[in-house]
Nucleic acid binder design. Structure first.
Lengths: 215, 215
DNA sequence: GGCTAAGCGGAAGGGGTAGTCCACTTGCGT
DNA sequence: ACGCAAGTGGACTACCCCTTCCGCTTAGCC
């Protein structure tokens, strides 16, 4: 029986094919990280030292490549949340999650774009996503119960923050990192319970597909 | 002598030509606002009810069209700042400027993109930009002197906020407006002097060209 | 070592967009 | 009313990118 998902489908791949597959993912990862998601498929192939056909045989569509490339980034997000849950200090946990994810966005242009324009359909980070979402909800709950996080913080505010951070992360070079740090610092300040003051309603952001929904 | 800049170059245009020019700008404005900056030139032409050639004769490059279209948006920014300066309440002035500009970004997808990807060169909003910048610096100074704005607020933090807002404004439909309002509310809270707490250094953002600089 | 199917690379097909060219139309001064 | 230069539209070229196809290569089993 072949592997259910492409994740470890390599089981049935010939050795050289598996090798190429890894090189492709590596190349795509680098390319996406530095140039964003709009890198031509041919460029990825060239960078990986393979022909275009090889690329397409492993990843029938551009989406499937993107999905695969960012699968572990997504997993890293989930892990970050779970690590944070292990922190005895609820506020520090909250703060850490946010800082980590934002740093990831800054470090990877493609990851950022994947967030912004995320293919509404066909992307099945579902499992990771819901894991991360549930975990984060827990982090939020703990921080609120500890009286450190303002009560009217909405879980969707994380998405708000991430979207905002995306805008900053698009800045080239050093600026992205510095700007993101400052933005996050500003926002974390507003998130503290002491600073609570009336707010407009939270955005109807959903975690599922941050991209365009059928408006 | 022909008009120096294209702004009012219409002086020498034939009546029908000037008419077409207006229709093109109108069409481009609408198209950019709803679909973003990546609208095909042909689409703009069709929408304006003219041929592609006509479009290209008036606006030799896509950039020149974008520049012209957003010239008045830029002017509106400058005006918003100057209006705010007339407000006797320094904090309210500060708040108003920020809210207005962010609302403009949300209302116009293209304006937002123009900010994000702004053509590094060749765009000469210089005059408007520096007017707005100087005015805003004044707003900031006043708000700080009144003890309402935290002392470590950097002028570049406006750019930071705008970039962040861009990320949120990219959200489709209603979400952009709601999200933006909430983001701005959060940030304004952090900007208040009372909430001042140590911050990482401000980003090296410049007002000139928010887009890619030679990194 | 040799056979075979999996794997491979590059060329070719198809779609879409930026910008140009030219024969035709039309505003407007006289 | 008329002529001409300014203005116009749509076809056309050139490019870039995604994806597929096909004849050649090579890993891996016997």
């Amino acid at each position: 029986m072949p592997a259910r998902h492409s994740e470890t489908a390599a089981v049935e791949l010939r050795a050289d094919a598996r090798d190429n597959r890894h090189r492709i993912l590596e190349a795509a990862r680098e390319a996406f990280a530095t140039r964003g998601l709009d890198v031509p498929m041919a460029a990825v192939a060239r960078r990986a030292g393979v022909g275009v056909a090889t690329l397409y045989r492993r990843f029938p569509s551009r989406e499937s490549l993107v999905t695969e490339v960012f699968a572990d980034q997504m997993a890293a997000c989930g892990s970050a949340v779970e690590e944070a849950l292990a922190d005895p200090d609820p506020w520090r946990a909250f703060q850490t999650v946010i800082e980590k994810v934002c740093a990831m966005q800054v470090a990877d242009q493609g990851f950022t774009e994947a967030f912004l324009t995320a293919f509404p359909e066909a992307i099945d980070y579902e499992r990771e996503r819901s894991r991360a979402e549930a975990g984060f909800a827990d982090v939020v709950r703990r921080a609120k119960e500890a009286g450190r996080l303002r009560a009217d913080f909405a879980t969707a505010d994380l998405v708000l923050l991430l979207r905002a951070n995306c805008g900053v992360a698009a800045e080239p070079g050093e600026a992205a990192a510095v700007g993101s740090r400052r933005l996050v610092a500003y926002l974390l300040q507003s998130f503290r319970a002491e600073n609570a003051a009336p707010l407009p309603p939270p955005a109807p952001f959903r975690f599922d597909h941050p991209g365009r929904q059928t408006s």
